[in-house]
Design a protein around this nucleic acid. Sequence first.
RNA 1: GUGGGCGUAGCUCAGCUGGUGGUAGCUCCGGGUUGUGGUCCCGGCGGUCGUGGGUUCGAGUCCCACCGCUCACCCCA
Length: 426
Amino acid sequence: MTDSFQAPRGTLDWLPPRSGARRAMIGAFAARAERAGFREAQTPVFEEQGLFARTAGASSEVVGKEMYVFTDQGDRELALRPEFTAGIVRAYLEHGLSREAQPVRLWSAGSCYRYAAVQRGRYREFTQVNAEAIGSDDPAVDAELIALQVGWFRELGLEGLAVRLNTIGDRADREPYLALLRAFLDKHLGDVADDVRRQRDLNPLRAFDTKDPASQAVMAQAPVIADHVGAEAAAHFDRVREFLDARGIAYVLDPTLVRGLDYYSRTTWEVAWPELGAQSGIGGGGRYDGLAELIGGPPTPGVGFACGVERVLLALAAQERLPGVAPRCDAFFMVLADAARPTLHALMEAARDRGLACEADLAGRAAKGQIKQADRVGAARTVVCGDDEWARRVCLVRDMTSGEQIEVALDDLVGHLADLAGGAQA
RNA sequence: GUGGGCGUAGCUCAGCUGGUGGUAGCUCCGGGUUGUGGUCCCGGCGGUCGUGGGUUCGAGUCCCACCGCUCACCCCA
């Protein structure tokens, strides 16, 4: 043990340039979602623990082991959100959004928390971008959500994505199928790994997720839910696919695709970037028509998805496609006369008021160091003021591209810089 | 939570079977150019060798524990 500190295990410090990439990614998502009619929703980072416990389902690891729970000074049982959906649906019900035009479309971006083993691409505090459309069971909504998610990835320049799609039917279809699946598992208990046997009672659907080859071989013979969905859910799914096909969105049907949270119904999907290894899932979503009822609301259909910003960022970095925030510096103030610094810094501030990006040396650098810094920040122009210029109340404005410099009176400097920048932008 | 690998300067890394921490590269600052920039040359700043114990005359090097990173299981974003 030392007397110094480290960031808690599983947390990330967002520093430049990655902080800029993160902001650009979220900004692109927000803009795209807004174009599709989504508006921003920010719900609390913590909620009553019961909200998540009720919605995620008992079999879910997210609730069983991974939730950050705590009791506050008022003895309230709270939990840091492990995902967005429950909080968004809670807010929809609490604020009577069912009276607005449906579906209500909301996007969010922010931190979620899960106490899981830390690995590359899996953190305890992580960032999700999220979108939900609540209040319509139109299959076009499912397709809108998938299109928003895939469109965002495409806009970021991410290549090599794999979209898997499935339907898990309605709740009413589920029980008869699960009985069938349990019966199948019971017949093969001997040929199957321990974890699969455990899933038999917990959540038999997850048995398909096993990585044990022998178990996989067995599960390949198992009955599949897609073959046991009711007529309505099947028709809904066909229609979703029509909407996707018309958009040219490529996907693979995966009848074993089951998502980790129990509240899903009908359409489910996942997007993976396979090169990421064990944490290849960069986004996933599904329809959750029964969720609102679970938390005391009226029957309300809904669809949503989430994407892991850190994982998308890893994928983009691997493809050297990290979005950057365009660095900009219209003028770097190189002040070599110490007496002139307060005045020149005031002029710099006035230029900022006019909308220009300006910087000056703030570390006592020598002349060479200052112009090097100007070059480093990509300054379009450098304003030079030494003893000689200061005595005459002028400065030199140097064009950093051409190297040409002209003398400008200090009184005219801000207007001059504004004109130059305005002309350059036009 | 369970196994494997790793941990030397801000970053990337040398350091052979234990024998005094590298003029190493990059970055940063200064000088060459007494006030003009991505190159070049010179110089400088910068290290409790992850932390704590142990073995030893002597530990960056060997042993143990802890912390952190990483890969897999698991889970999922």
